[in-house]
């Protein structure tokens, strides 16, 4: 494995000297481990990475995804396969912030450069495993706080809100909920209820319409992703309550018309399509002899509102 790495470094050095000839044979191989590809967000991310690989042309990209959001076994197998194949770098969006620690430790011990993006591995688990690994990714909590703050601004102090959470147990769901709660505390909002709809449109629709019955005085909704925000907005349409304001997360294409119509107050873009390619750039820099990554390398996030669509 070391030999491999050495070879690629040599190749890279050679490539600098003779830019046209050398690269093809010994291009570094990057293994990209994605989450569910059955999701616009990761789909975009993968396409961004593929375009990026074509554009740079100086590395080979191998990507794998999983069946659904909770299927971390296929990620586990993917990482192990990459170790056996002897890739130069593994760039991974872990499906489970604890379960993936051990296999990644194995990869690092095998001399592979590992970059963790999208969702951070659990700090305690990393410590327990003796794994020192930087995280390249967006601040889910910070992003949710941005969205929550825009809702707080629109409602003013004492505004009554509910949260629609993602999958219980998912790290980004927990981070986003914390971010919403940060905004609620900062904006002195009144949280009436918080329930999961498992990231799903239909469930969000059902759960929220029932929450609205229980709390007809709801003024604002914070949904942990846009799919659920769509379900919430549909419930508001059906109940005839255009007065209730909704914020989401992810900035998927399906919410663009809703932003335009003003039905969705704001959402958060984490620039998913760039996130993987950013992480790959950083991994290649390390493979090429650059300094080791440290701590949390934050990627861009941006609040998207009606103004950005118009």
């Amino acid at each position: 494995m070391k030999l491999f790495k050495l070879a690629s470094v040599v190749a890279l050095v050679a490539a600098t000297a003779l830019p046209t000839i050398a690269a093809a044979a010994d291009k570094p191989v990057v293994g990209l481990v994605m989450k569910s590809l059955a999701n616009d967000f990761f789909k975009n991310m993968l396409e961004g990475a593929e375009a990026h690989a074509k554009k740079r042309g100086d590395y080979e990209l191998k990507a794998i995804g999983m069946q659904n959001e909770t299927d971390f076994e296929s990620q586990l197998n993917g990482v192990e396969n990459f170790i056996t194949q002897g890739v130069d770098a593994i760039v991974i969006a872990p499906a489970d912030s604890r379960a993936m620690v051990a296999p990644l430790k194995k990869a690092i011990d095998a001399g592979i450069t590992v970059v963790n993006f999208d969702v951070s591995l659990d700090e305690q688990a990393k410590k327990d495993a003796g794994l020192d690994l930087a995280f390249v990714g967006p601040d889910n909590r910070g992003g949710a706080k941005l969205a929550g703050e825009s809702l707080a601004k629109a409602l003013g102090e004492g505004g009554k809100v509910v949260i629609i959470e993602g999958n219980p147990g998912a790290d980004n769901a927990a981070q986003r909920k914390l971010g919403f709660e940060d905004a609620i505390a900062a904006g002195k909002l009144n949280l009436l209820d918080s329930r999961t709809a498992h990231w799903e449109t239909e469930e969000a629709n059902s759960v929220f319409s029932t929450m609205l019955t229980a709390h007809p005085d709801i003024q604002g909704v914070m949904a942990a992703n846009d799919s659920m925000a769509i379900g919430v907005i549909k419930a508001l349409d059906a109940a005839g309550r255009p007065d209730i304001k909704v914020v989401g997360f992810d900035n998927v294409s399906a919410v663009q018309p809703l932003l335009k119509e003003g039905k969705l107050l704001a959402t958060v873009d984490q620039f998913g399509s760039q996130m993987a390619s950013d992480a790959i750039d950083k991994a290649l820099a390390v493979v090429g002899g650059g300094p080791k990554l440290e701590g949390w390398v934050k990627t861009d996030i941006k609040l998207v509102t009606t103004d950005d669509v118009k």
């Binding site: 569910s36 059955a38 999701n39 659904n68 799903e200 449109t201 239909e202 629709n205 799919s227 769509i230 379900g231 549909k234 399906a254």
Partner: peptide, 15 residues
């Protein structure tokens, strides 16, 4: 009915 109610169709619905 799903589409009429929620105005979207996604390949990940119905799990």
């Amino acid at each position: 009915v799903y589409m009429a109610r929620l105005n979207i169709a996604s390949p990940i619905i119905g799990i």
